[in-house]
Design a protein around this nucleic acid. Structure first.
Length: 552
RNA sequence: GGCCUGUUGGUGAAGCGGUCAAACACAUAGCCCUCUCAAGGCUACAUACAUGGGUUCAAAUCCCAUACAGGUCACCA
């Protein structure tokens, strides 16, 4: 019996060789320096902010270098697959304006290096596993899960290094004949890599974020193919896929750093060139006094749903993520306010090497700035789009009152220093509700105004103002001087300064009169520019409102 | 326990041997402006380089140890 017989027993139907695949997926013909990167999530959960950061970084790397950005679905863990996760990934990427050059989704394959779904690449992996068995660099291992657990426990107790290596790799030296017989018998097995590394030997490895790193050589006989579904483990899939897909740069989470020795040995064994690695740090979360990894279960903002539900503009989220991802991004942004984010020259060295706390305040700030720069019409469309998903009633309200809404949104907008009052679309309703008669009439907002404690007085004041002073065609200065005249007539100071100098001479000042009008017309004591609001509402409508309020 | 990484103010961070009694942004506070709000302007703020040793004329920056934090050691990725 030879290793070849063993390989043929395990993979009787695998006829293609690794050389065949080498030809099938030739090196990419790209210009010098072009980066081939991938976004490779596993559909075992919904896309979270960490995935988003990884996708964003990858996209930058590819775009900036004129390279390729592909999406690979890493679904080798069939048991933990979550329904809808794949759809969510694709929808989210699209929502954030990240368009992969190569991908496979809903039966559509784009790109020449597919399949891009790991479960569809089984045959390819098998050819590589088969090759490894043939050359004696992999072997079937018949140890049960329990046996492996036991070894680990004993090692932990004896304070030995944990893992299947050296003498703990019990099937490593099993004779081929014995292995052959066991398999023929139907015994369960995994394929393990037969490491020839020496743990006491070191190698130096260049990691793009952290620089030169020194690791001990791998000596673990780690599994490369699982027993039940014969799918590869991550390590092996990484080797095969990223080699065949000609990936040049791998951006992945920090948790993979410790696997570098394994990957190093794997690539070396096949004589493949390793991609460059960029390990990005975890996104952390402050929970009381402790800082921990952001959690999909505990922190709503970990999942990308959060941002769409609240209605943050896509670009705000991207900006926010990029700010965390690369420390000089903000500086670049101030110099290039209009450039799309992917023109940023991402520098792995400038990546935070420790975990960053995701700062929702910062997100709000970024978002406010972005929203404030939008044209009223565009903002209107964005809000409507958001509402159509998350608040249907509000959607129909704003659809029916389109001009009114746009007018309102346009107050102190489209100027050099616009208002920044919305951080996300779900905030809008609370700040515009009084513009809609339906909501205004229904509102039971309590009356609170210290200067004038009887609300009937306020309505009376408003009524006088509307009948005797207000004219729709007045410009802002005239409008305000009329409020001043009204103030004087009623015994209020027409300048705040005057009032402050002699408070006893007046009932209040022009600001109090304005507030009274504001409350009468909107029920709110704080609104954007009253002049504009009055104009938008119109005299007739305001009179109607006051009349109704006086009756009630 | 082994291996790897990290530790600058409330947060993100700049800095990479002298110009650091430590930038910038967010947050917070106050003042100004102002009909309210938002915005804007100005100012303040945080007793910020984990600790201890070295190297050096000179260290946040280099070296070593300690502490703390994180990651990893699955037929999960």
């Amino acid at each position: 019996m030879t290793t070849k017989d063993l390989a043929n027993l395990i993979f009787p139907n695998i006829t293609k060789t690794i050389e065949d695949y080498e030809k099938e997926y030739p090196e990419r013909d790209l210009k010098e320096g072009a980066k081939v990167v991938r976004f490779a999530p596993s559909p075992t959960g919904f896309m979270h902010i960490g995935n988003m950061m990884s996708a964003t970084i990858n996209y930058c790397l590819a775009k900036k270098s004129g390279g390729v950005f592909f999406v690979r679905n890493e679904d080798t863990d069939q048991a933990r697959t979550v329904e809808g996760a794949v759809d969510f990934i694709h929808n989210t990427l699209k929502h954030y304006g990240i368009y992969p050059d190569e991908y496979e989704y809903k039966g559509e394959v784009v790109g020449n290096y597919g399949p891009y779904i790991q479960s569809e690449r089984k045959e390819i992996y098998h050819a590589y596993v088969k090759h490894l068995i043939e050359i004696g660099k992999a072997y079937p291992c018949f140890m049960s899960k329990e046996e492996v657990d036991e070894i680990r426990e004993n090692q932990a107790q004896a304070k030995k290094r944990i893992g299947i290596y050296g003498r703990y790799a019990r099937c490593r030296n099993m004779s081929i004949d014995e292995a052959y017989e066991k398999i023929k018998n139907g015994d369960k097995f995994v394929i393990r890599f037969k490491s020839s590394g020496d743990f006491d030997e070191k190698f130096v490895f260049e990691e793009l974020n952290k620089g030169k790193m020194e690791f001990p050589m791998n000596d673990l006989d780690f599994p490369i193919m699982k027993s039940e579904d014969l799918l590869p483990t991550y390590h092996f899939a990484h080797l095969v896929d990223d080699h065949l897909m000609r990936t040049t740069h791998v951006v992945r989470g920090e948790e993979w750093i410790s696997s570098v020795p394994i990957h190093y040995e794997l690539f070396k064994t096949f004589g493949f060139e390793m991609p460059k690695y960029i390990h990005n740090s975890l996104i952390l979360k402050k929970d009381g006094d402790t800082i921990r990894k952001i959690s999909k279960r505990k922190d709503p903002e970990a999942l990308m749903f959060y941002y769409t539900e609240k209605g943050y503009p896509a670009s705000a989220v991207i900006e926010s993520v990029m700010t965390i991802a690369n420390s000089n991004y903000e500086e670049w942004r101030t110099q290039n306010p209009e450039a799309p984010f992917y023109e940023f020259d991402f520098n792995p060295k400038k990546m935070s090497s420790s975990g960053a706390l995701f700062d929702l305040d910062k997100l709000d700030n970024i978002s406010k700035n972005i929203i404030s720069k939008m044209k009223a019409k565009d903002l209107y469309e964005e809000i409507a789009k958001w509402a159509s998903e998350y608040d249907k009633e509000f959607e129909s309200l704003i659809r029916e009152n389109k001009d009114l809404v746009i007018g309102f949104l346009n107050i102190e907008r489209e100027q050099s220093k616009p208002r920044k009052d919305f951080a996300h679309y779900s905030e809008v309703k609370d700040k515009i509700w009084y513009m809609f008669n339906e909501l205004f009439d229904k509102s039971d907002k309590p009356y609170e105004f210290k200067t004038i404690d009887k609300k009937s007085d306020v309505y009376e004041l408003a009524s006088v103002y509307l009948n005797d002073f207000y004219r729709e065609e007045d410009d802002k200065d005239t409008w305000f001087s009329k409020i001043k005249s009204l103030s004087e007539r009623l015994g209020y100071a027409k300048e705040v300064k005057e009032y402050k100098e002699n408070p006893d001479n007046y009932k209040g000042h022009v600001g109090d009169v304005s507030t009274a009008l504001r409350i009468a017309i909107t029920k709110e004591s704080m609104t954007p520019d009253l002049y504009m609001i009055m104009k938008l509402l119109g005299k007739q409508e305001m009179l109607k409102r006051i009349e109704k309020l006086q009756k009630s």
